[in-house]
Design a protein around this nucleic acid. Structure first.
Length: 596
RNA sequence: GGCCCCAUAGUUCAAGGGAUAGAAUAGCAGUUUCCUAAACUGUAGAUCCAGGUUCGAGUCCUGGUGGGGCUACCA
């Protein structure tokens, strides 16, 4: 029952009858009527003037008359300038609500005929330092987009590619070897934090050495290359590649610490993966693809033996694919893993959740795969999200200006606790219940704060001003849900049983109508969010829904309403709004509490 | 230097080429004998600049200004 499609056809028909010319379907623009005007759907007639050959107002009026007379669901119309506002029978909307109530997963596509297999890679951390706010955005986005895509009936696999090898890993290993004195992870300092500290330590010592060398007369450039520390780190990488047992065992131990640390963060964040790949297993993949490409003449070999792709025709640069010593670079391994993934899962589409600083990399990756003749390169999508910035600019690990993921999570929980206590909300709850509610609220505030922003956009986070709990926030929505559940509990206590169907003849207010129309939009919102890979669209929709509900709640008694049919209708409406809030929040990875 | 992205109330975010640019927060002024006041109501406040395309531009095009990113035989 798609009313918009029906209206479109009716308009097409009406234009044909009135002006004896059938317009291109694209000229029919039907949109939802804006709040401040009367009506449910609006036809913009400007594009039809060429056919009607009459002024906008007249065209709109003529069409309005015709539609009102010929379309059963249209009860009224009004014309403002070139906008024809159509009102749909209220009973239609009530009947619509009836069908929604009976649908368990309202808005989701079920039993899709040819479901796609979609891979989504997110998180992809380096094992040399703990996760920070930027990673949080990545993780929340990846997890949420996966859920959103599933609503469209497709099969989605979440994968993580752990970046566990390379010079940056050797830096923290070397620093640990030199200054670690056998320190082990503890309750006070979990593994990723410990390893991260040595990564910072390396950088400090390295900088000192560079300064010393510069003081002795070397150029800064040379000093960077000649510093003993970096030479030692490079030597360590060579040992790692040649599987030196001592280096490998230290590497394994330290990586394990970090991964265990990450697991705690992931668990607290509530994200997970269907499969975890390690770059140490996959970094050699892709070499063959490059050699194949060389044979086909897609790539070129330079005198020193390094292999390149020339993208100057595409308006880009030359890009190295294999070093002169035959080892792989980032691009090489990404070519390999892309290929492996598409074959492993027989995937139709692959999404990479990676920051926009890598736009160039993914642009190149896609072009190269295309040049190699893989038709699926077209279905490789870089979900490029904006950086999270502090008021003073970008976060920098080495300058200690990062917002640590674990610290932030803890802070959110304690703020939630403080606020709950101040508001006197926690009285009468058991300790475990309190803990659960507080965590749900704190985490909800953080997740919503991040996901409500369009993924593509750079966002600002001010650590000094803690994340809000009032207004357009996660807790506001959670509170609305808890309110609804409270009403439902009370209804149950009073033994109120809902009829199977809502009486479609009752009178409903504008606010109630507005709420039903919002419910009607949900499937469309999900579709758009999936198309755009944008949890923000769901977040903003749910906020709107919650806000409208609170207004409705304020001046419409639900259980206190004397007219039984109306009371039942409002209860139905509230219940359904609760369901959608829950459903939408779940898609954002946010839990909703029954009370708070 | 070259390439890419961004610019909306004091601040953080919205706005499928459509009507009077929405919220939140901070500010000011209000609402609890009534289903949870983490709520609701009122008030004030914004499209970086200059051109262009269009019936219609925050949105599209050109130029400028300001900010960010990429341009590694790092990942």
């Amino acid at each position: 029952m798609d009313i918009e499609l029906m209206l479109k056809k009716a308009v097409l028909n009406a234009v044909g009858k009135l002006y004896e010319q059938t317009p291109d379907e694209k000229l029919i623009q039907i949109q939802k009527t804006r709040k401040d005007f009367d009506g449910d759907f609006t036809l913009v007639v400007f594009s039809l003037l060429r056919i009607s050959k009459k002024p906008p107002e007249q065209t709109a009026s003529e069409l309005g008359e015709y539609l009102k007379d010929n379309v059963e669901q249209i009860s009224e119309f009004n014309v403002i300038k070139g906008f024809l506002n159509l009102s749909i029978n209220k009973s239609f909307w009530i009947l619509y609500l009836n069908t929604v109530v009976q649908d368990d997963n309202y808005g989701f596509i079920k039993n899709k005929e040819n479901p796609k297999t979609i891979l989504i890679e997110y998180s992809s951390p380096n094992t040399n330092k703990p996760l920070h706010l930027g990673h949080i955005r990545n993780n929340l986005l990846g997890y949420s987009v996966a859920k959103i895509l599933e609503t469209q009936g497709d099969k989605v696999y979440k994968v993580n590619l752990v970046n566990d090898r390379g010079i940056h890993i050797c830096k923290s290993m070397l620093a640990y070897q030199k200054w670690g004195k056998g320190e082990k992870p503890s309750k006070e300092k979990k593994g990723d934090k410990l390893v991260g500290d040595y990564y910072v330590k390396f950088d400090q010592e390295y900088k000192k050495e560079i300064n010393d060398l510069v003081a002795k007369g070397q150029s800064e450039e040379n000093a960077k290359k000649n510093a003993l520390l970096i030479l030692e780190a490079q030597e360590m990488l060579r040992k790692w590649e040649s599987k030196d047992s001592e280096v490998i065992s230290l590497w394994k131990e330290m990586n394990q610490w970090v991964l265990e640390g990450f697991d705690v963060t992931y668990k607290n964040l509530g994200v997970d993966f269907d499969k975890v790949y390690f770059e140490s297993d996959t970094y050699k993949l892709g070499k063959e693809l490059v050699l194949e490409g060389l044979e086909k003449g897609v790539f070129v070999k330079k005198e020193d033996g390094s292999i390149w792709v020339d993208l100057t025709k595409e308006g880009l640069d030359q890009k190295i694919l294999l070093r002169s010593d035959g080892t792989s670079v980032y691009m090489t391994q990404d070519l390999g893993t892309a290929h492996q993934r598409f074959t492993d899962y027989n995937a139709d589409e692959a999404i990479y959740v990676v920051g926009n600083e890598q736009n160039y990399h993914f642009q190149v990756l896609k072009i190269i795969l295309g040049k190699l003749g893989f038709s699926w390169s077209e279905y490789l999508h870089h979900l490029s999200y904006g950086m999270v910035e502090l008021p003073e600019g970008k976060m920098k690990s080495r300058e200690g200006t990062v917002v640590d993921a674990d610290d932030l999570l803890d802070e959110m929980t304690s703020t939630a606790e403080e606020m709950s206590r101040e508001l006197g909300k926690l009285e009468g709850y058991s300790d475990s219940e309190k803990k659960q509610i507080i965590e749900t609220i704190g985490l909800g505030a953080l997740k919503y704060f991040i996901l409500k922003v369009d993924p593509k956009k750079t966002m600002t986070f001010d650590p000094k001003e803690s994340i809000d709990f009032n207004g357009n926030t996660g807790p506001f929505i959670q509170y609305t849900y808890a309110r609804i559940q409270s009403i439902i509990r009370k209804a149950n206590d009073r033994g109120i049983e809902l009829p199977i169907e809502i009486n479609s003849k009752i009178k409903i207010s504008n606010k109630e109508l507005q709420l039903i129309k919002l419910i009607y939009s949900y499937p469309e919102v999900l579709k758009e969010a999936a198309n755009d890979y944008s949890p923000a669209q769901i977040a903003n929709y749910i906020y709107d829904l919650a806000k409208e509900f609170n207004q409705f709640y304020h001046d419409h008694p639900i259980l206190g309403e004397d007219d039984k049919s109306i009371s039942e209708f409002r209860l139905y409406l509230s219940k359904q709004l609760g369901e959608i809030i829950k459903s939408g929040m779940e898609l954002l990875g946010i839990n909703v509490p029954d009370r708070m």
